[in-house]
């Protein structure tokens, strides 16, 4: 995988799907619903018609060809509308949705609530796997949404202040160690009341306070595999920003490559935690 300079523009695409809309789409069979949870959770119950794509399976090899093969086997063709959900505040679903986007799948959104909320609203659930008609899915990688560590380093070196590195881990982890120059936006900040993401205006205001606006190039990262930062990718997108990349290998890779890190020194902040 390698990155290139691709800055998107234009109107903000919808990144989430409301539960009521999804109910209609299930009724019409107009979308493939993807459940990102573990197989045992899926088997116990899931949203009617949903197919199961546990994130761990996808991550065992997320090369574009394999991902395209998996998508096809789940009945997802190039033009199929896809809605992904999980029970982990949208982070697993985001990583799957981003991976589909990366292989060139345009029409993918996140359910705007978690599965637990879906159930608590009294929505219908099911325990049977639906019949699936396999389809063909092409693999046409979209490098403009990916950041590798090489891309990240070059972007920061070349464009400095115009690139915003966003760290989505919890605040204490950030204070202890982060990529130099990154700003802290813990993943909990991204959620709205009873929704996996804040409202658009809420998110825009929060980002504007930080000086992050339409002109910024954003690279999100988190601890290891790009789940929390995947959610941030969609949060930024939902706020109408278009030039966003996910550093998918995140801080785990950064550290293993022994790249420089920054720390907040001379303070015992961990001792303020009641954990």
């Amino acid at each position: 995988m390698s990155g290139s300079d691709v800055a998107g523009a234009g109107p903000a695409p919808a990144v989430t799907t409301d539960a009521d809309v999804l109910r209609g789409e299930i009724r019409d069979r107009s979308a493939v619903v993807v459940d990102a949870r573990r197989p045992e959770d899926y088997k116990r119950s899931h949203i009617p018609t949903a197919v199961n794509l546990p994130l761990a399976d996808l991550l065992s090899d997320d090369g574009p060809d394999r991902v395209a093969g998996i998508a096809g086997s789940l009945g997802i063709g190039d033009e199929t509308r896809v809605v992904v959900y999980d029970d982990s505040f949208g982070a697993l679903a985001s990583r799957i949705a981003w991976t589909l986007e990366y292989i060139g799948h345009a029409d993918v959104t996140l359910l705007d609530t978690t599965y637990a909320q879906w159930r608590s609203m009294g929505m219908e659930t099911d325990d049977a796997a639906p019949p699936v008609t396999p389809r063909e899915h092409s693999a046409a990688p979209e490098p403009g949404i990916l950041a590798t560590h090489e891309y990240l380093e070059k972007a920061v070196a070349d464009r400095g202040d115009d690139v915003v590195l966003v760290d989505n881990r919890e605040r204490l982890n950030f204070l202890e160690q982060h990529i130099p120059g990154a700003v802290s936006l813990p993943y909990r900040t991204l959620a709205g009341p009873d929704r996996i993401l804040r409202g658009r205006e809420d998110m825009r205001r929060l980002l504007a306070n930080r000086g992050i606006g339409d002109g910024s190039e954003i690279i999100t990262y988190c601890g290891s595999v790009g789940t929390l930062s995947g959610l941030a990718y969609y949060a930024m997108k939902s706020a109408g920003l278009s030039n966003i990349r996910l550093y998918v290998r995140s801080f785990k890779e950064w550290k293993s490559l022994q790249k420089p890190t920054a720390t907040q020194a001379d303070a015992n902040y961990w001792d303020l935690s009641a954990e």
Binding site: T114, M121, D194
Partner: peptide, 9 residues
């Protein structure tokens, strides 16, 4: 519900 999130009902 997921941590930090309240069900609507």
């Amino acid at each position: 519900p997921a941590p930090g999130q309240k069900p609507r009902l």
